[in-house]
Design a protein around this nucleic acid. Structure first.
Lengths: 201, 201, 201, 201
DNA sequence: CATGAATGAGACTTCATTCAT
DNA sequence: TATGAATGAAGTCTCATTCAT
């Protein structure tokens, strides 16, 4: 079992799944990219599904590594910003993998790991929000909903980057995201009442 | 050409595509649900792809109907809230269609209409933000990014609802979303600076 | 579902399985003989295994029809002879099917029906022997073993016929078989004692 | 060329072919049992077919050793009994090999040696019968058919033993077989005529 | 002598589409 | 207009065999 060959297959699969999605992707595509014979594929993976899940597992593990638990004795906003920046960094380094994760096909079995990951993230955000409310830094709100809103914001941001070739200052983007969130749910500050005198939107 | 039969096929296809996604969906599933013979399908649609695109077109049209242009002589926040509420209503009425739209398969040809729709929405939001900044009700920000953030927030919110059976007060949800956005990007109000003396998040 | 096509497939399968055995037989062989497209096969049978089992079921049913329960108020030897003759007739009419039955592959799942059939036959013969002993027309013997011996004799006889082109008088053969079972082949008196004076074998 | 390795491969193959039959048996199974690398297999045997035929050759040789020509100056029935007993002994000692021989797959090329062996046996039995008739110890009969009957009886008997775990008195069984051949199983006198007055079977 | 990674022909099966009725 | 039997290209996976080390 050559680790090299296995690696080449994973690398090839990553690209193919990213470009074509799970169903359009064919074993032929993968082995052609890997420069390997058909049978060799099945020496390392039992099926198309297996190599796909393997890839998903990899992303999730990598993403989890980048998301660090908030240490309350330091500036939490800074830590959140860094978490987001690291996630953005990863998705830019591994655009293929990111694209795969974002393809939400409706096969629950196939995307189980991803679904689980996002649910975990959702729980984590919600937990943080609740804690923030208790401590008094976050204004009382529908944390379930807000958690979704935050997750969705990050996901869509990532999606927007995937096709851009330019260099992106992920730290700056992360700061803008946090800034958006913070001023939105931060306790102090004004509510969104419409100022009729100044007019519109 | 019986309009009835065509309708039954579209209705059936909607459910099948929603439940199984494009690739897992089979013509057999559709014609069985529609109670129609195999050949009949091809009397009304040239291919599986065509009926799928037809469906996408329908959703997009329906969604566009529900999103009304902001009238600056009225409360814009109220109008935005109503727009969002109408979108949420639609997705709850037609969960199948919503599920289809949210399946982001990576076949650009297949999902062309959807991609186009979201790009339009993005442009629209960005335009509104820019106008708001000019008028002075919105603080200067990366409107490209913020538009994405807002879109992502709504998308993920919708996703979260699709599996829930309970009755949902869409207007209230929409208000919470707007509230989040408003207090976040509204000009007045404090920035998110961390209060080291109080500690924590 | 055209009964005709199904019939042609079964007919073709019968020949192919008979000639090549289960494993060497290919779907291609079957559909070529049947003059039918690849997909058509799977319209009528879920798999190669299914059509094979279908065939086995057919043989067993046909064979059971030909084997009639002995009626004690008539000459039993005559009835046995006729039973055997009918079995021989069938195997000659349907040499392909007979050949399939006689291919004892070691896949117990595949040949389940056949194994069951032979076990039933074995039980039946043993039962008859036991009854014959009770009534006093058959001498006490190891009926388990004798049943096997009789079954084996018939099986092998059938095997011997399968490749012969000539017309065969099955009734005569059956009579010879029964005769062998009844009297044995030893010339001198009852009991197989060797007559040293007359010399060898 | 290590004779040891070759032996281990043959031993492993014997078990595998016996358990799974020729087609289900895989080279992997054999080399795993033998504890030998894949390439090594092809150092000793050119192909799966070759090792199989080698095995068949072994059985046939072994069987032929156990079947001794009848010596006319001794009791022939006793000699026949001993021949049969030796064959039964062998099949019990080497159940795997016996099982292989009895798998009558319909690939004539593959089972050539076995088919040849059984034909030889058939010829031998027929010759003996003819001689017996000439000498006057066997009653005139269809020796071709009778030879088959005898072969089938022994084959089926062996088949019946292969799955039994108990100790089997092969000499006794052989005697019963010969006895059946010699006298038949009909109780009343010579000739199997049905006694209508006594009724039944 | 031995290894085991690599090969690739070819098997089975699926399913969108066609076409004669 | 409707039917549904038939089609066949194309996909996934298996496994006997090879060959460089």
């Amino acid at each position: 079992m050559s680790v090299q060959t296995r690696g080449r297959l994973l690398e090839a699969a990553k690209r193919v799944f990213s470009e074509k999605g799970y169903h359009e992707a064919q074993i032929s595509h993968i082995i052609n990219r890997a420069g390997v014979a058909r049978g060799t594929f099945y020496l390392y993976f039992r099926s198309k599904e297996e190599i796909f899940k393997e890839l998903l597992k990899e992303v999730v593990e990598e993403l989890k590594k980048r998301i660090k638990v908030i240490n309350l004795s330091e500036d939490p906003l800074e830590q959140i910003t860094e978490n987001i920046a690291r996630v953005l960094d990863f998705t830019l380094e591994e655009r293929e993998l990111a694209r795969i994760v974002l393809q939400r096909n409706s096969d629950p079995n196939l995307f189980f790991v991803i679904d689980k990951f996002f649910e975990d993230i959702l729980e984590m955000i919600k937990g943080s929000l609740n804690k923030g409310i208790l401590i008094g830094v976050i204004r009382p709100c529908n944390t379930e909903l807000m958690a979704r809103v935050i997750l969705g914001a990050v996901k869509e941001t990532v999606s927007g980057f995937l096709d851009k070739e330019e260099d992106i200052d992920t730290y700056k983007i992360a700061k803008e995201l946090v800034d958006f969130g913070v001023r939105g749910i931060w306790k102090t500050g004004r509510g969104g009442c419409y100022d009729r005198d100044n007019g519109a939107l």
